[in-house]
């Protein structure tokens, strides 16, 4: 390359030189070229001649071309079979070259992807991708975790709300502040010979509570209903009983929600409610119902002293 550059420079210097006096150049040229009178005549016209000095090289290419074509034609003429064979080989080689060139270009332009990558490059790319995948997986895990927390928070709020509502309903039913319905019994105390004492009714209530009653109300003969809650008391009053301050007269009907079989069994045990009421001169009828309704509610009591702990 350096040699060629020097050659280039040398050749360029010659045409660039004409700025100087033509005579000196012609003088200098004369010995080197060792060409005859033609050069001398050309030396007369200086700028024109500056170019013609170059034609010496121009002559050269024309000469090689002539030479080459001549030699080619000559060789082809000289020994045709051998040359055609090699020519065919050359043609085949060049055709293969063009073919592969195009194929390679197509392959490369088709996908500038992994197909042409080397093994170590592929390994590196693969490990890069693995690391990236690992990072992304961690990110996914973190996001999933936060999403789970958020949704569980929302769900938890929802669940807590529903739980609280359900619990409030349960407590309301247990405390007697909400009406309730469900399977249960209708227990009717009918006085026959003498009024039913409040103690018997209280016994029945306690027995029913012990048998799993969840909501109760007691209805007097006049249809007045009193919700039986924890603070309900039973007193004998004249001709009837006072339940929670409300005076009821017989017959009394206890509407109780709970497991009917268990409560019925509890009432009917020997020496139990039914037996003692019958012994006291009353009559007890027990009806199982799939649905009974406890509609009476106990009056709300505002707590005056007790406060929730938490």
């Amino acid at each position: 390359m350096a040699g060629s550059a020097g050659e280039d420079g040398a050749r360029r210097v010659v045409p660039d030189a004409p700025a100087g006096p033509g005579e000196r150049r012609s003088e200098r040229r004369a010995p080197t070229d060792s060409v005859g009178a033609v050069r001398d005549t050309s030396g007369v016209v200086d700028p024109e001649e500056g170019e013609p000095t170059v034609p010496l090289p121009t002559d050269e290419p024309t000469v090689p071309i002539d030479r080459q074509t001549g030699s080619e034609s000559g060789t082809s003429r000289g020994s045709r079979p051998r040359l055609t064979a090699t020519n065919v080989v050359i043609a085949v080689l060049l055709a293969v070259l063009g073919f592969t060139l195009v194929v390679q270009l197509r392959t490369n332009s088709g996908d500038a992807s992994l197909e042409s990558a080397r093994q170590e490059d592929l390994v590196r790319i693969l490990s890069d991708l693995d690391a990236q995948e690992e990072r992304i997986r961690q990110e996914i895990a973190g996001l999933e975790e936060s999403r789970r927390q958020l949704s569980s928070g929302a769900q938890g709020r929802q669940a807590a709300l529903e739980e609280a509502r359900r619990r409030a309903d349960e407590l309301g039913i247990l405390a007697g502040s909400l009406p309730a319905r469900g399977p249960g019994l209708l227990v009717t105390f009918t006085p026959v010979s003498k009024p039913i004492p409040a103690a018997r009714v209280l016994d029945a209530v306690q027995e029913l509570r012990g048998a799993g009653a969840e909501a109760m109300q007691i209805t007097g003969g006049d249809g007045a209903a009193v919700r039986v809650v924890a603070s309900t008391y039973f007193l004998d009053s004249d001709g009837g009983i006072s339940v929670g301050g409300r005076r009821l007269t017989g017959p009394y009907t206890i509407v109780v929600i709970g497991d009917p079989k268990t409560m019925r069994t509890a009432l009917n045990i020997p020496g139990g409610v039914v037996a003692s009421v019958s012994g006291d001169g009353g009559n007890v009828t027990i009806q199982e119902r799939d649905v009974v309704e406890v509609t009476a509610v106990s009056p709300r009591r505002d707590l005056q002293y007790a406060r929730p702990v938490s």
Binding site: L97, G98, V102, R106
Partner: peptide, 14 residues
């Protein structure tokens, strides 16, 4: 011939 063969190869590849 060589140039023709080259073109032929290119065309064949295409």
């Amino acid at each position: 011939i060589a140039v023709l063969a080259l073109f032929a190869g290119v065309l064949l590849g295409v």
